[in-house]
Amino acid sequence: MRPAPFSYSKPESLAQALHAIAGGAMPLAGGQSLIQAMRLRTQEPFAVVDINAVHELSDRIEITEHFVEIGALCTHRQLIESEVIRQEFPWLAKAALDLGDVQVRNRGTVLGNVCWADPRANMAVALLASNATISVTGTKTELIPITEFFTGFRATVLGPRLATSIRLIRNSNSIGTYLEFARQRQDLALCNVCVVHDDHGTCVSVGGIHQRPIRLSALERILNDPDSTIRDLHVQIQNTLSKPIFDPIIDHHGEPAYKLHLAAILIERAISACLKGGDRD
């Protein structure tokens, strides 16, 4: 199948791009999710704005003393190849490497994967546990914590605005692990988990068990309680996931209960991996 007709623009300024978006155009960066959806005609935008020529947007990963900032046009490949990501955020490189395939990673953008907001999107889940902040520009520019970014199934707070970069806090003591369970390696995950531990505590994010990628704050509180033990952990994970607050993705690859079961196993494995030092380059 082929996309429905649409008009196309490729502006050079952010203002022009935002104008198009305000008029209802869908932004196109790498297009690895959007063009697929347009081909299957599950998305039929009447206008597409290609943001690749917008001079305010970058494909670079900027490194400052306290932050790493991933530009809107940075591809998964660039992320995987980035020295600073591999050294300081190896779980992000792992999440990117488990995503799609070489061709998709050559073209698809990290921020695009986040904004597409599939509840199992590798980068969404990995960045969620990393306490990233998303820079969003509309009439003004705001920094939105990623924990407030996802609102539902493939839905975000963005509206007629553009995510222009994503910022990570550098912390030399952080450890993290990204794990996913897919039928075959690099398939869309049935469930994925990221655990990141730093000076401020441990963060746990999960994809696949809810309509959006989520943080398990109840579990995090327990993990960050110095009195909890590993023995408790198994029970605590089970308890956390047995609460009737989750709404797993419905598909033909397993019952909701199975997805929650997978989540429990992956979380336990990821925490265990973190205790052994987490993902490494």
Partner: peptide
């Protein structure tokens, strides 16, 4: 449909010609 675009392999079915 894999081809090389400016030195990188891509899937030409997920790319618009205009891009």
């Amino acid at each position: 449909c894999t081809v090389e675009l400016d030195g990188r392999t891509i899937k030409s079915c997920l790319t618009l010609a205009i891009q």
